[in-house]
Design a protein around this nucleic acid. Structure first.
Lengths: 229, 229
DNA sequence: GCAACGCTTCGATCATGATCGAAATGTTCA
DNA sequence: TGAACATTTCGATCATGATCGAAGCGTTGC
């Protein structure tokens, strides 16, 4: 039975090193980072990080662009982010009753971006609020934006039309590994996160992929979305 | 930045061994298999397979049930299957221009089950046909069953109502790693696969997770679904 | 109870790959 | 052109874990 198992193992081996896992995790916000920053989060020397990065690029998990004397690395495709989402979900479950759950950084748990959409308590609260207001149907597997939801996002100034065809799919669930419940992803989720950044409801923290909810953001998420946050 | 990276690496390390990857791949059809069968597909001795299986169970990727003198292993949750789907998708891409694509077993490419739904050429053909008949909207991220699609499945004898609430989500895409295009998954996909097995349109092959399309199945998929297969 | 069978545990061996110091490469700016 | 800086390459060392033979355990059936 010739199958894909060898490639699967090879891919997994690439993620199996704590340094490389840290690098990939750091890049899950979709932005590009310099090699030195990635060496820092991986907790290794620059030369070791360079070795790791070369392997990740070679296997096309990352792509690199030169910006002056530094090299910026980012996830090669959204597919890689989606794969990592799925792995983190399983990694966070680990329902070994005896073993205590890993303590997760409070800022990460509170609010972060997951590639292009909101995650953490914030992401789940916004999703729950939209669901309660009838803007959204969502379960672990699938999601659907209602007419009410389309109108709601339109009123917020989000244009969901795109150069694609008229009938479009906007909404998918993404299982939040820290909250263990689904939050809004897909085009609609990305649009909400974009809006929040543009209106300064959230700000990216200089390091890590957690975000800070501004005072204006707290008001907006509560009043506009009805989120309990 | 305390994050989930160490757990991610640990999880990946578990999949990074070719033997364990083969075992997990073999179990992707959702059924339980005996340790000896899994040793065979992994290409290792029974004692080595036992060691691998113990690690996978300990980390809750698999669960085991004793059936007489033998032990049957299966994926612990659908979440594990979904994670492996995502990894296989990335593993199959590997767009290194120089390296030739792995040759994929013809039977696997033709038709197989992906946990609970159809995959391979068959899965994609059925999905495409449903899409062309307006039963389905599907892109890489999200999916939606139309009213026409609900009626179509109802006429086939598929009852999509479940003990859950009335407005339900049935449909998600699953990126087919051999065809590199999305096929139908979620509750609707599982229902179609169930139907095909019940009506003997497909038969599970004794070993491996590829399935055989019967003569009746070929007719059914072509005439009932309009699939080009 | 005993034999047959499936599976697991133990112990020793062996290979792979992660690491960092040192040095080289490449880019920018003066 | 030369200095400063980011990153990569090279080489040697070291730790982890995959493997299988041999032996042990547990279940079934006679």
């Amino acid at each position: 039975m010739q199958t894909i198992a060898p490639e699967l193992a090879e891919l997994a081996a690439l993620i199996a090193d704590p340094g490389r896992a840290g690098i990939l995790s750091r890049l899950m916000d979709g932005r590009a980072q310099a090699a030195s920053e990635l060496a820092r989060v991986a907790g290794v020397t620059p030369q070791t990080a360079s070795w790791h990065l070369a392997r990740l690029v070679e296997r096309a998990l990352l792509k690199v662009e030169r910006r002056g004397p530094r090299r910026l690395y980012r996830l090669a495709t959204p597919l890689v982010a989606q794969m990592l989402e799925g792995m983190m979900t399983v990694a966070a479950i680990d329902p070994q009753p005896s073993r205590p759950l890993p303590w997760i950084d409070a800022e990460m748990r509170r609010a972060r971006t997951c590639y292009d959409h909101l995650a953490g308590e914030l992401g789940v609260a916004v999703t729950d609020a939209m669901r309660e207001h009838g803007h959204l149907h969502l379960d672990q597997e699938a999601g659907e934006l209602t007419a009410s939801g389309r109108a709601f996002l339109r009123d917020l100034g989000i244009d969901l039309r795109s150069p694609a065809r008229s009938r479009r799919l906007l909404c998918r669930p993404c299982l939040d590994w820290s909250e263990r419940r689904p939050h809004l992803a897909g085009r609609a989720g990305a649009a909400v996160a974009d809006l929040a950044l543009q209106r300064d409801w959230i700000r990216r923290r200089p390091q890590g992929r957690s975000v800070e909810i501004t005072a204006a953001g707290l008001v907006a998420f509560r009043d506009l979305f009805g989120a309990r946050i």
